[in-house]
Design a protein around this nucleic acid. Structure first.
Lengths: 187, 187
DNA sequence: CATCAAACTAAGCGTTTGCTTAGATATAAA
DNA sequence: TTTATATCTAAGCAAACGCTTAGTTTGATG
């Protein structure tokens, strides 16, 4: 009956994700998205409804991408060793041409804070608690730890991860390694 | 010969600081600053030159305010105990009506990243390295630690502080306490 | 008390924001 | 090949952005 889309929605969202990741939400304008996604504004609105809609899909795309390394942790039975590896994997995952961009979810929480709309905020919080749960499940493999210790160290590791995301933007490789090594010294 | 200013520059900058702290740089508009500072746009530009100028002064104002708690650490001779107290003091310092706003410097690094102008970025980085130095100097009071350990733990504590700033926005009191307590268990 | 320069108010500058719309184009189905 | 319809381009919308300017008010000084 009619013309079909000249672009693949998944492909253009990946381009959008990269842009939001690099620049944050506010700084990324629709005009910038047009260029990066390689499609007209009209098509952006036809496919995703609004800038916020594009961002929501970008967050989902980010989650899918990072799943590659969370899956490694999920399937490893190495306890703390696996979690430590996840910290290093994250550093590698978050960099593009030696520039570290942190974690898109973490960046967004920091930028938008409570100003974010509820749907987005839920999406972000759910990711955090999923990561925490991932840590907790891995800690349970350490048989010497009681439940209270596991909960406490779960909160510790989640916050440490947030710190790593932020620190990766301003500290050098050696400083980041110092952080990770010390974090896991005595758990 | 002529009229004198109807407002005190220090007072209006304190109002601006509160606004930037709560909302971030981009989200805070000149119109919002007008209302919060209680003066006309013209006066803002007459006193501070630009929005960026207002922000630079706000960062200085923030540094002055936080000096109240860094001074406590600087003058304490408690080693790790003092640093741990600083973490708790920071949490108290960063909250307004039970809402935690994190650290203005940390928030800004995260929001503006490398997009920030060099003068501002220098100001922000200098603050980070000052905090790190503060930790290092305090660690030196622990006589059992060698120089390498002190450097490493300095990097650890700085990154942990960044994590605390970010985590304070989304985690609850108990989770934050878990983080701080576990952080200092290891050292 | 009159003067006049600085500080004030408020209107408006050009640009960019997110988003929409009118009209040309292309293509799957009849 | 024709036709119908979704997709495309590009121009343009109102609102908000950072910032400026014209004109009024004010008050320390002579």
């Amino acid at each position: 009956m009619a013309r079909s889309k000249q672009y693949n929605e998944q492909e253009v969202i990946e381009k959008a994700t990269a842009l939001f990741w690099k620049n944050g939400y506010e700084t990324t304008s629709i005009r910038m998205l047009e260029k990066a996604m390689g499609i007209n504004q009209f098509s952006i609105y036809a496919s995703f409804g609004s800038k916020h809609g594009v961002f929501l899909e970008s967050i989902k795309c980010y989650k899918k991408r990072i799943k590659r390394i969370t899956d490694i942790l999920e399937n490893s039975n190495n306890g703390l060793v696996g979690i430590k590896q996840y910290f290093y994997d994250f550093l590698d995952f978050s960099k593009e041409n030696d520039v570290k961009k942190g974690c898109l979810v973490t960046n967004t929480v920091n930028e938008l804070g409570q100003a974010a709309n509820p749907e987005l905020m839920d999406e972000l919080m759910k990711f955090s608690s999923d990561v925490r749960l991932l840590f907790v499940n891995n800690l349970k493999q350490e048989e010497t730890k009681d439940e209270e210790t596991i909960e406490r160290q779960g909160n510790y590791l989640l916050t440490s991860m947030l710190g790593l995301s932020l620190a990766s933007k301003i500290l050098n490789e050696k400083q980041l390694e110092d952080f990770i090594e010390t974090t896991f010294l005595n758990l």
